[in-house]
């Protein structure tokens, strides 16, 4: 006679069958002496230790591989030249000054106006079971790209000065119609922008285990800090930009913003009105992300000594109020120290 199968379930089966009670049972152990921990063995406020490798791609101007737990992201930065004559509605900085707009107001927007930073995120097929082959970019990938793009601009980490390719005119016999606007300029040398570097920032998820934005952001930051732009000069005779392989200049990066995402796990699966027990899960993995509605992302920079917040993004629930937000900012500060140690 066959032996009776046991009536209790193994924990792996329990996790598959009812993930929410499984995570709840881990966070709320029946025996009070065991500390509450997540299914991945971490404490609620414990994030995964990041590992960063730079310059691993040979054909990119800068690259980085970032690994936090089982989330692995590779980012490559590749610069391409863009002639100002090829930009529709190009207005040189001098022309804007003449028009009476402040130089600071106009110059800060060159990155955005001419789309000099082009980030793209790809979630590779097979990096997680829910990414199917042969489908258009998912909502998640598109949302991540948009967030990355707007954070790159609003955090202002790339200095546009490093992306300009200048040409200093020696004589005035060049009679080029594109240079007409320089006529009013008094200063000698007639240095003008002939072209820009456009940075194509490609992010590929090799393995996806939750918290994609933090990892992608860290990869972009590490890759940009690793980026070296080749020396470029404008060749007057051929009217092209020529680059040399020698002495590439490192790209100037301002600050070190670090993103920290926290998911809110509520004890009640169907969120009822008011209260209830909840846990803040810092750096959630894929299982936790699928069970949490509310996520908060805080981006901080402490390079100047005091904490500067560069972005807060909270959606999907009502648990986090201003008090918890303050706590999450201090969690993000700790996370910043971790990344600072790895990045520099």
């Amino acid at each position: 006679m066959a032996t009776q199968p046991p009536l209790t379930l193994s924990s792996a089966t329990f996790a598959k069958l009812s993930p929410h009670p499984y995570l709840l049972a881990n966070l709320q152990p029946p025996d009070p002496s065991t500390p509450s921990s997540r299914t991945n063995g971490r404490q609620p406020h414990q994030a995964r230790q990041p590992n960063i490798n730079t310059s691993s791609l040979t054909h990119a101007h800068g690259s980085a591989v970032v690994r936090t737990g089982d989330t692995t992201v590779i980012c490559g930065v590749r610069g391409e030249t863009l002639l100002t004559t090829n930009i529709p509605n190009y207005r040189s900085a001098d022309a804007l000054n003449v028009a009476g707009l402040g130089a600071s107001a106009s110059l800060g927007n060159e990155l955005r106006d001419y789309d000099l930073l082009v980030p793209n995120i790809e979630l590779a097929t097979g990096s997680a079971p829910n990414f199917l082959p042969g489908v258009p970019p998912t909502t998640l990938a598109q949302t991540l790209s948009t967030r990355l793009y707007s954070q790159l601009h609003s955090a202002g980490i790339v200095d546009v000065e490093g992306l300009r390719i200048y040409h200093t005119k020696e004589d005035d016999t060049l009679g080029d119609d594109a240079m007409e606007e320089d006529g009013i300029e008094e200063q000698g040398g007639k240095r003008e922008v002939k072209a820009f570097w456009v940075l194509y920032i490609d992010v590929l998820f090799i393995s996806f285990d939750g918290n994609p934005f933090d990892a992608a952001w860290a990869a972009v930051l590490a890759a940009l800090r690793d980026t070296k732009i080749p020396q470029a000069r404008w060749d007057v005779d051929q009217e092209i930009v020529l680059c040399s392989r020698d002495n590439p200049t490192p790209l100037k990066i301002r600050g070190l913003p670090v993103a920290c995402t926290t998911a809110v796990f509520t004890a009640k699966e169907r969120q009822k009105k008011g209260g209830g027990q909840f846990w803040m899960l810092v750096d959630p993995d894929r299982l936790e992300e699928s069970l949490c509605d509310e996520t908060v992302t805080v981006m901080v920079d402490r390079t100047g000594g005091e904490t500067k917040i560069l972005a807060i993004s909270k959606s999907g629930g009502t648990t986090v109020g201003p008090e918890l937000m303050r706590k999450l900012v201090s969690v993000a500060e700790e996370r910043w120290n971790e990344f600072k140690a790895v990045l520099s």
């Binding site: 954070q151 202002g156 807060i312 993004s313 629930g317 109020g321």
Partner: peptide
């Protein structure tokens, strides 16, 4: 929400916790 709970917060730019408060 109409129960006076914060349901969505999106902030961009550079600011301090005091300014956010």
């Amino acid at each position: 929400t109409s129960h006076n709970e914060l349901i969505l917060a999106e902030s961009e730019g550079s600011f301090t916790m005091k300014e956010w408060d």
